[in-house]
Design a protein around this nucleic acid. Structure first.
Lengths: 155, 155
DNA sequence: GCCATATAGTTAATTAACTTACCTAATTGT
DNA sequence: ACAATTAGGTAAGTTAATTAACTATATGGC
């Protein structure tokens, strides 16, 4: 088996795993909280007080700004985030997680934690560390290749 | 960093990588061929002459039968698959890849191959083999945990 | 200072890919 | 022979995305 074939198989495993965890997340999400919304909520819990704007989030998640507007609207309607105006720039709004938003996120994570813990128990510390390192390297190489592609396309 | 945290980070890397490759696929897909359709096409190229039914495919992809009906309808409308009636069972139809379907699939794969090759070149044979093995093991443990969850739910 | 241009955000319309609820036809087990 | 299961499909609705077009604010060159 050559490297091309192995890389294809690695991508397949990654796709299946991502799909599987995605499916589990969907089962656990409460009524009215969609996947895209949870992803943003989750991101915000890691980056509080960084004054992120809707545009920043759109870039971060690789979606268009209207897509992010829609996601943020739903989160705001549910009271899970707030948009506060930026003092220096009248165009800009900062996205802020509310207490309710943080609570809702933590509920979901609480349910998922049991599953993730069950998986983590099957591996040694060293195995997890190795996999994490390799997976991260693989991801970085992928993104670098993707960048080259987009630059080619724009030329 | 404990095992739970490492597992979370691994899942994050996997999610990002899957998303990235998905995005690249979307860029490459020709007008009128959606992701779900390509996935089915791709699956069929690996399993020709196995007499798979729409139900089989729905199970395989973890989607409902109406979802698969829709995907197959589009593929059939584009002439990329055929549904042939099963001789022994009047309810069943077998899904068959057409020559046009195989050709369309191969075109897309041809474009993607350059990218995958670029990534594969950055890794040693041993690294890829190690990552593949670990990624597969991780996937299997995930699926096993997911199975337990669904059984709990049905009891 | 003024205007061209870029940037932030939004609205409207459309699409892909799902879901659930419900229906029909064919098969199977007792 | 007939009740229950299975294969397939229709209809209607949802989520998350897209592109096109709009408004409002900011900025850089002359």
């Amino acid at each position: 088996m050559n490297r091309l074939e192995m890389t294809l198989l690695i991508l397949r495993e990654i796709a299946i795993t991502a799909d599987s965890s995605r499916r589990r997340l969907r089962e656990v999400l409460p009524e009215g909280l969609g996947e895209a919304q949870f992803d943003v909520l989750s991101h915000l819990t890691f980056t509080t007080n960084r004054n992120e704007t809707p545009s920043d989030l759109a870039r971060n998640f690789h979606v268009t700004r209207p897509a992010m507007t829609q996601t943020l609207n739903r989160l705001r309607a549910a009271g899970l985030i707030e948009l506060v105006p930026a003092p220096q720039d009248g165009r800009v709004r900062y996205v802020r997680l509310t207490a309710a938003g943080r609570a809702r996120h933590d509920e979901v994570v609480g349910v998922l934690e049991a599953d993730i813990r069950a998986v983590s128990r099957r591996f040694s510390n060293a195995d997890l560390e190795g996999l994490l390192q390799q997976a991260r390297r693989f991801r970085l190489e992928m993104e670098q290749t993707a960048e080259l592609d987009t630059k080619e396309h724009s030329s």
